[in-house]
C-alpha cells in the first residue's frame, strides 16, 4: 500500500542551525507537556503513605495518560511543529510512542496488582467503583488501539475504516482515562493540581475540536475544482485542480497534500499524495496518482468540474535551501511524482546544474511520465536513466533493480558534492540509502521521506 502513502515519500533539506534549534525547541515542548503531571507531583508534598511501588504506579499512570493525550497533538498536522523534522518523522514518532506509552500505562495496574493482589477486585465491574472500571476499559481500549494499528493489513482493515476506528477508540480511551483520574481524585483533588488536569483535559478536547471540526470547516471554505484528469502510463492518472474563489496552495516542489475527493472534509476520508506540478501563480496543483487501491482505482472516473479539498502542503522533502553542485533523483514507480514537481520547477528557474534521474519501473511500457522526463531532459542538464525489470528485446538500458553496482555506474565521481533524493517503496528506500552510504555519499546528503505509516 506504499503507493497511497508513499507518493509523499520524501526527505528533508540540509540541516541548518535554525532547523536544529526549532527541532530541539519542539521536543522540549513535547517533554514539558508529557512530564508536566510528574513535575507537579514533585513540586508539592503529596498525600504519601502508599509506599514506593504505589507511588511509582501512580506516577506512571499520570505520565501515560498525559502521553496519550499529547498523541492527539502529534497528528494534528501543526505545520510549525512538524516542519523542523518533516511530518513523516512526527507520524512515526506518534506510532512508536504509542507502543512506549501503552507499556507505561500497562505498568500502572500491573505494579499495583503485583504489590497488593487486592487491587484485582477492581477488575470486576460489578464490585468496583465506576471510575475504576473506566480505567480498566481505558487500558483495554488502548491495547486494542495499538494492536489494530500495528496489524491493520493482516486484519484486512481498509485504510478509511481504520482511521475512523482509530479516532473513536483513541477519544474513548483518553476520555475514560481522564474520568478515571478525576474519579479516583488522588493527588488531583486539591486546588491547582485539579486545575492543571482540567487544563490538560480542556486542551485535549480543544485539539479534537480543531482537528475534527475547525479544520474540516476551513477546508470546506477553500474548495478546489478538478479541471483535467489525464491518463499516464502504468495505470496512473494526473489530476489537475484549481482553487475555487481563493488563492490556492503555495508549496515548495516535493511537498504533498491530503486529498479529499467525493467526500466531505468531515468524513475523515483523505489520502496523501505528492504534488507533481511546479508551483503555479493560480494556486492550482497537479497530482500524479497510481491505481493501486480502493480509492486510487477511482481516480480515472473523476470528471472535470468535480469539487475536492486539499489539506496541505506538508513535507520537507525537496531541494529548498540546497546548494549542492549536483543533484541525483532516484524514483521507484510512481515515486516519480515529487521528482516531476522539482524538475519542472528547476526547468522554470533555468537551473543549469548537472542532474541525474534514475527511475525504476517494472516494464518500459508502464513507465509513468517518461515523455515528460524526456522533454525536461532537453530543457535541463538532465540525464535520465530508466531501469526496468521486464525489458523489451531491443532494450539497451539498465535492467533489474537499483542496487549498489547500478548506482556506482551512474553517480557523479565526487560523491561528497552530490545531494540525492529518493522516493519509492519502503524496501527500495532502505536499500538505496544503504547503498548510497556505502558508495561514499554522506548520510546528510541523501534524503527520503516515510509515509507508509499504518
Amino acid at each position: 500500500m506504499w503507493f497511497r502513502l508513499i507518493p509523499a515519500a520524501m526527505s528533508s533539506p540540509p540541516a541548518t542551525a535554525w532547523i536544529w534549534g526549532r527541532a530541539i525547541l519542539w521536543l522540549g515542548v513535547y517533554l514539558a507537556l508529557v512530564l508536566a503531571p510528574l513535575f507537579v507531583l514533585l513540586a508539592e508534598s503529596a498525600p504519601g503513605g502508599g509506599g514506593f511501588w504505589y507511588d511509582l504506579s501512580l506516577a506512571l499512570g499520570f505520565a501515560g495518560a498525559a502521553m496519550m493525550a499529547v498523541q492527539f497533538v502529534l497528528t494534528a498536522r501543526f505545520k510549525r511543529m512538524t516542519a523542523p523534522y518533516g511530518i513523516d518523522i512526527v507520524y512515526y514518532f506518534h506510532r512508536y510512542l504509542a507502543v512506549v506509552g501503552v507499556l507505561i500505562v500497562l505498568a500502572h495496574p500491573i505494579i499495583l496488582v503485583v504489590a497488593d493482589p487486592v487491587y484485582l477486585t477492581y477488575l470486576d465491574p460489578t464490585e468496583a467503583a465506576w471510575h475504576m472500571t473506566a480505567g480498566v476499559v481505558s487500558v483495554v481500549l488502548l491495547l486494542l488501539l495499538v494492536a489494530v494499528s500495528l496489524l491493520r493489513r493482516r486484519l484486512g482493515l481498509h485504510y478509511d475504516e481504520w482511521r475512523a476506528t482509530h479516532a473513536v477508540l483513541a477519544i474513548l480511551a483518553v476520555g475514560l482515562a481522564f474520568a478515571h483520574i478525576d474519579g479516583v481524585g488522588y493527588y488531583v483533588s486539591s486546588g491547582w493540581k485539579r486545575g492543571l488536569w482540567m487544563l490538560i483535559a480542556a486542551s485535549w478536547i480543544g485539539i479534537i475540536v480543531y482537528v475534527r471540526l475547525a479544520k474540516p470547516l476551513l477546508l470546506l471554505r477553500h474548495p478546489y475544482r478538478v479541471v483535467a484528469v489525464t491518463a499516464e502510463r502504468g495505470d496512473a492518472w494526473t489530476l489537475v485542480v484549481e482553487p475555487e474563489g481563493h488563492a490556492g496552495m503555495r508549496f515548495t516542489p516535493g511537498q504533498f497534500a491530503w486529498l479529499v475527493l467525493r467526500s466531505s472534509p468531515f468524513a475523515m476520508r483523505e489520502h496523501p499524495f505528492s504534488i507533481s506540478s511546479a508551483p503555479r501563480t493560480s494556486g492550482g496543483v497537479e497530482f500524479t496518482i497510481k491505481e493501486l487501491g480502493d480509492f486510487t482505482s477511482t481516480i480515472g472516473t473523476v470528471q472535470p468540474g468535480e469539487i475536492c479539498y486539499l489539506d496541505g502542503p506538508y513535507g520537507s522533502f525537496g531541494i529548498a535551501g540546497s546548494h549542492a553542485a549536483e543533484l541525483v533523483f532516484i524514483a521507484g514507480g510512481i515515486g516519480i511524482a515529487p521528482m516531476a514537481s522539482i524538475l519542472r520547477f528547476l526547468a522554470e528557474q533555468g537551473d543549469r546544474r548537472p542532474l541525474t534521474l534514475i527511475h525504476a519501473c517494472g516494464s518500459w511500457s508502464r513507465v509513468p511520465m517518461r515523455d515528460e522526463m524526456t522533454c525536461l531532459a532537453e530543457r535541463l542538464a538532465l540525464r535520465v536513466v530508466w531501469v526496468v525489470e521486464d525489458a523489451p528485446p531491443d532494450w539497451r538500458g539498465e535492467v533489474g533493480r537499483v542496487d549498489q553496482a547500478l548506482l556506482d555506474r551512474h553517480l557523479p565521481s565526487d560523491r561528497t558534492a552530490v545531494e540525492v533524493l529518493v522516493c519509492g517503496p519502503m524496501p527500495m528506500i532502505d536499500s538505496v540509502e544503504h547503498a548510497l552510504y556505502r558508495l561514499g555519499v554522506p548520510m546528510g546528503n541523501s534524503h527520503s521521506e516515510l509515509f507508509d505509516l499504518v
Partner: peptide, 30 residues
Amino acid sequence: MRRWLARILAVATGIAIIALAVLFAWLQNS
C-alpha cells in the same frame, strides 16, 4: 534511517518518563 530517528526519540522519551516516575516515588518514600 529516518525511522530510526523516530524510534530513538520515542525510546528516549519513555526512559525519561520512567526515570522521573522512579525519582518521584523515591522522593515520596525517602
